[in-house]
Structures are given as C-alpha cells and as structure tokens.
C-alpha cells in the first residue's frame, strides 16, 4: 500500500525527504537543542495547523484552481467556535454542536466560493479572494468590542499540546487529516477526477466526469479544513482572534509548490505538499534556534524560500518546451 502511494504521486518524494533530513542535520549542528525531543515535538505542534490547511489547498490546486480564502475562513470559524464553547465572554456551551457549526461555517464559505467560481464562471483566484474578506468580516464582527473570549475549559485549552504516545494531540489530528487526504486523492473517483480535471478539463468534461460538482466539492472540503485549522489554532492560542489565520496562506501555498504540486494543476499530491510544510516549519524553527537576529529572520526566510523553490522547479524549467 505504501509503495502504491509513493509510486503514484508524481516522482517519488525521496528527494524531498532527503531535503527535510538534510535540513534537520544542518540545524542540529548549528544548535544541538534543535534535535532535542522537546523541540521536535514543538516542530510537530507548529506543523499541525498548516498541515491541515495544505491538504485542502492541495486538492484545490491539483484541479488547477486556487483557494486564497484560508485566513478569512479560519477567522470566521475560529471565532464562531470559541463563542459557543465555554469562554470568558458568552458563557455559552454548545458542546459538539460548536464544532458542527464552526466547521459548517467553513464548508458554507467554501461552497459559496465554489458556486461563484463554477456557476458564475469567476476565476477561483478572485472568488476565493472575495471569500477571504467575507470570512474575515464575519470574524471581525464576532470579535466585536466585547471582552476577549478565552477558553475557560482547562482540558480543552491543554488538549492541543498534551502528548499522546509522545506526540502532541494537534499533530495526531493533522496526521489523521493527511491520511484521509491521501486516501481521497489516491483511492476515490473524486480524487482521481480532480487530477484529471487539472490535467485537461475539456477531456474530463467529455469523459463524463462531473467537473462542476467536483470543483465545488473541492472548495467546500478546503473550506471545511480551513475551519478545522481555525478551531485548532484558536485552541492552541487559548483565545479567539479574527486574524488567527494570518500568514498561513503564505506558508501553505509555497509548501505545496516546494512539494512539487504544480499551480497549473494535475501534478503533485498531498504527501508531497505535507513534506513541503515540514520543510518550511523546520526552516522557520531552525532559523530561530540558530540564533539568526529576529530583525533578519523574515528576510532570511524569504531568501531561503526562493532558493528552495528555484531548486525544486529547476528540473521543470523547460516544461513549456514541447517534447516529442
């Protein structure tokens, strides 16, 4: 089964795994604390939110579209969730319904973007850009001017960091999402259909694949996963914030690209995108531990990011040339 997965994603991810390992070795030399159990657990913890998002983002990118709405959906869903979960502001407790409502908000925003994209034939770039701000608007409205809503339930607030079998719960959740993503991509008609759409939409249509439905579904799933990421991030922070998802988009899309998921669609996969997330999280974490001046961290991160993407894209630089 594992072989199956590896062989079917475009080109084996061996190179990526090596890159992740190499990066870890380098950072371990720069600062031995990098390889400590606590820090590695920290890396897994930090990877959790972007991993959940990248699964949805990859499904969308595989079909040749893009989802920019991540931050907005996270803000709306995160705020919706915390206001109906035991908190310092409202005192409401909807229990499991809080999850249903928050995730539903994400799915609804995804469906909204999907319908605009597919029914009104607006490019996904613009449709999801709009949804980003609609979601953000909802988040800001919910945030309002009242008391900062913080979690009052200790167990919930600690859940993301608590370890199960040495691994943070956050990461167990993210890992489960990645596995489900892999199954969807490799073992369902829907997943294979997304790849087909990304490769050639016209043929997909004439082959009887329900292209419109698949596109809307992919965006709805991406919305749902962004919502899940929003809830998890809120839990990790312990209090609500409408811009809980800021900067996530710019981790997730480069991660997918570094993983080899082509923005034009059809190439790449969930596994590769996930490795891309690890690469970026480790890079971020390692730079801090390596003692890079905080003032320079952003710039250095950007430069290394560009370097990484150029390296990954190098074998494909002649892609536009027609091979016969």
């Amino acid at each position: 089964m594992v072989n199956h997965l590896l062989s079917r994603e475009s080109k084996g991810p061996t190179g990526l795994i090596l890159a992740v390992v190499a990066l870890m070795v380098v950072f371990s030399f720069l600062n031995p604390r990098f390889a400590s159990v606590e820090n590695l657990q920290n890396v897994l913890f930090q990877s959790s939110v972007p991993l959940i998002i990248v699964v949805g983002a990859t499904l969308v990118i595989l079909m040749g579209s893009i989802d920019l709405s991540v931050q907005g959906v996270m803000g709306a869903a995160g705020m919706a969730w915390i206001l109906i979960t035991p908190n310092t502001r409202t005192g409401l407790d909807y229990g499991v319904w809080a999850w249903v409502i928050a995730l539903g908000t994400g799915v609804a925003l995804g469906l909204f973007a999907g319908l605009i994209y597919e029914r009104l034939k607006v490019p996904s770039f613009v449709a999801t850009l709009g949804t980003w701000y609609v979601g953000l608007g909802i988040g800001i409205m919910l945030y309002g001017n009242g008391l900062l809503p913080s979690l009052t339930n200790e167990a919930l607030a600690r859940w993301p960091t608590r370890l199960t079998l040495g691994i943070p719960n956050s990461f167990w959740l993210a890992g489960a999402v990645v596995v489900v993503g892999l199954v969807i991509m490799n073992y369902t008609r829907f997943g294979r259909g997304l790849l087909a759409i990304g490769n050639n939409e016209a043929i997909a249509r004439s082959s009887g694949i329900s292209v419109s439905r698949y596109k809307i579904m992919a965006l709805a799933i991406a919305g749902g996963l962004s919502a899940l990421a929003g809830i998890l991030a809120t839990m990790q922070l312990g209090s609500g914030s409408s811009d809980i998802g800021s900067t996530q988009l710019f981790t997730v899309i480069p991660a997918a690209v570094i993983g080899g998921t082509a923005l034009s669609g059809g190439e790449g996969g969930v596994l590769r995108s996930s490795l891309g997330v690890f690469l970026l999280v480790i890079l971020n974490n390692g730079l801090v531990l390596a003692g890079v001046d905080p003032d320079y961290q952003q710039g250095v991160f950007g430069l290394i990011l560009i370097l990484a993407i150029v390296t990954v894209a190098w074998p494909h630089r002649n892609r536009l040339k027609v091979a016969k």
């Binding site: 294979r192 259909g193 790849l195 087909a196 490769n199 043929i203 997909a204 009887g208 694949i209 190439e267």
Partner: peptide, 18 residues
C-alpha cells in the same frame, strides 16, 4: 485526449471514473 498524469489503466477504464 489522454490524462497524461494518470495511469494507463485509469485512462483505459474511463468508466472507472464513473
């Protein structure tokens, strides 16, 4: 009109999609 990113089998059995 093949999906170049899918396998031979997937392309042949278009109805596998359906």
């Amino acid at each position: 009109s093949l999906f170049t990113n899918l396998t031979v089998a997937e392309n042949i059995e278009q109805h596998a999609m359906t």
